[in-house]
Amino acid sequence: MNIFRLTGDLSHLAAIIILLLKIWKTRSCAGISGKSQLLFALVFTTRYLDLFTSFISLYNTSMKLIYVACSYATVYLIYMKFKATYDGNHDTFRVEFLVVPVGGLSFLVNHDFSPLEILWTFSIYLESVAILPQLFMISKTGEAETITTHYLFFLGLYRALYLINWIWRYYFEGFFDLIAVVAGVVQTILYCDFFYLYVTKVLKGKKLSLPA
């Protein structure tokens, strides 16, 4: 465990909590893509099946349980409790265009052709693109609430910090996981445009709105 990995995990946790609190406090999930949140719930479910097969550390187990619980709570709030506020008309990204190719790729390119490993690979690939329905929704409506942009910032920052963590681990531990690194690079690149808008607009006190 190095500082980049730890701050990456905490940044991920912050993003998840920010989103939950935003929905809970405002009693509304307006502007949030339920599809992205469903994909993240699927990501955590398929990745953390190893909770049943291997123990890494108390930290590892606790964080996995928290991520899974929070992602299911978020999906529950969007599709059940605050369903009336869910902006389904703008959440029109076709998720099958992500899930099907990612599913196929995880069968073809993996570390080991075993059920658990294929599901882990699927979750890594799917996570890298799971934010696309949310970004698509923002591009469609042309704006995002400031709190939603904070959520996206921490979610993007998390994978960027993991990239530094992987460089660190390569040099100091000889650890290198090509699948995670390539997917992590793709994932981080998808946030670059958003990072630019976040720094140039949101951090200067302006609302994030895109030119028509």
């Binding site: 990995r5 995990d9 991920h12 590892n60 570390h111 080991d112 963590n165 995670a180």
Partner: peptide, 10 residues
């Protein structure tokens, strides 16, 4: 390397 099969990251 078999290392990667035991995924110790989140």
């Amino acid at each position: 390397s078999q290392k990667v099969f035991k995924h110790d990251e989140l």
